[in-house]
Design a protein around this nucleic acid. Sequence first.
DNA 1: GATATATAGATAAAATATCATATATATTTT
DNA 2: AAAATATATATGATATTTTATCTATATATC
Lengths: 115, 115
Amino acid sequence: MEKFINEQEALEDFLKTTGALYDETRVQLLKFIDKHGAMCICDLQNSFNMLQSRLSRHIKILKDSGFLSIKKDGRWSYYSIRTPLDRFRLQAIEEIRALPISLPELKKISSDCEI
Amino acid sequence: MEKFINEQEALEDFLKTTGALYDETRVQLLKFIDKHGAMCICDLQNSFNMLQSRLSRHIKILKDSGFLSIKKDGRWSYYSIRTPLDRFRLQAIEEIRALPISLPELKKISSDCEI
DNA sequence: GATATATAGATAAAATATCATATATATTTT
DNA sequence: AAAATATATATGATATTTTATCTATATATC
């Protein structure tokens, strides 16, 4: 992500990263977005059977922890895996990519993100 | 660590790993043991200013999540970084090793682990 | 007004720290 | 040698803190 000035920030960043990874829903969301590319909350809402507020909160945690980037276009917010990812976050994504867990089918309603 | 039979176990193992990493005390303990090698709870108690029960519980979590191994000798239990570590846990240890956080001085009272 | 997203408030669930106690082993005393 | 004591570790119970979910509502755009 970025370089750190003090040890406080470095530790906080590490804990924010591991905290984001310590939730089944967020692991599924990361794997799903990594697999399918940029999408909106509403696409996740249609694919996963979860409340919008729940998804929005989890996505915010993934964004704030450096895993996702956002591109807004009108009323849609497209979330995708952030590039570049720092080393450890990338290693985590690769670990999640290798996890043999099943994901729901992608039911996309937003237009493809072209920005 | 080991190979998994079903997706349930694989996800549980991943979450157990990230959960173990999502705690400041455990990150410090991992870094400390990685730096100094095998040691007992009582050494941690002398080095860190923490209650024995607190350290014992955190060490148990690190052991159960695959980061530490234990060798018992009399009334002492020597904990060290488990070998071999699977890829992701090793990457996590390397990340922690690189964290610029300060650690207390090692105040060792147990004899050096020779088993 | 309808849709997409974000967030506040309330509640439930999970994790942590502390106090107290149990267990096992080693050492000292008698 | 047996009994008592000390040491190292583990764990049960409880209070506190943190996190997750849901309901409801707010904000922004079409």
